[in-house]
């Protein structure tokens, strides 16, 4: 069985997080994030580590972990592809994007490829409505204006562990007029 522990450095970081709040309980969310960064999931044993570290009841940490969708209560693929299918994306091909990925990777939304590389999820609005269709990779970078060609490239790059770069999208007005330089 895997042993879940925070290192001395991580514990010092957790102390700094606790100091931002009047009591240790609010640190539960940032520390669950830390644990997920480290282990890739917050399965019950990781939740116990968080509870132990913050001296909180295990039931409380479990309650928090299960309330928020971004905490992975079970193991996922190395790269989790969260495709937005909420109504703005739905109108602009969100489901077509999702199905293209499902066909390409041979799995359904909610599943993980047998090699453990990719999971696909159909998710609620990610706040990129004007840049639909889009997806988020493992709770991090957004990839916008998806086309089959762009998806092919993203998947190829991820297989080589290359994450797409952050796409900065300025105000449309400011994109179409010359920038005032200083």
């Amino acid at each position: 069985m895997q042993n879940f522990e925070f290192t001395k450095e991580e514990l010092a970081k957790i102390d700094a997080i606790i100091a931002r709040y009047p009591n240790p309980q609010p640190a539960v969310m940032p520390v669950l994030w830390m644990a997920q960064e480290k282990y890739g999931h917050v399965e019950p044993d990781v939740q116990k580590l968080v509870a132990r570290t913050l001296n909180l009841p295990e039931a409380h940490v479990h309650g928090v972990a299960t309330f928020y969708t971004q905490y992975y209560k079970e193991r996922k693929g190395k790269y989790v592809l969260d495709v937005c299918t909420s109504f703005s994306c739905q109108a602009c091909g969100g489901y077509e994007t999702l199905h293209y990925l499902e066909d390409k990777l041979g799995i359904k939304a909610g599943e993980t490829t047998p090699d453990g590389m990719f999971s696909i999820q159909s998710v609620e609005c990610l706040g990129a409505c004007g840049y639909a269709p889009m997806m988020q990779i493992t709770n991090d970078v957004y990839v916008n204006h998806l086309t089959p060609e762009k998806l092919d490239k993203v998947i190829d790059d991820l297989k080589k562990d290359q994450l797409p770069e952050f796409e900065s999208i300025p105000l449309v007005q400011n994109r179409t007029t010359a920038m005032e330089n200083e």
Binding site: A27, M29, V64, Y68
Partner: peptide, 27 residues
Amino acid sequence: MVLHSGAGAYICGEESSLMESLEGKRG
């Protein structure tokens, strides 16, 4: 000023739920 990251819950945009979440609870 302290930044606090949510973790995926629409309801936490509701002001009292946001406070619950900031206190380290279910929203």
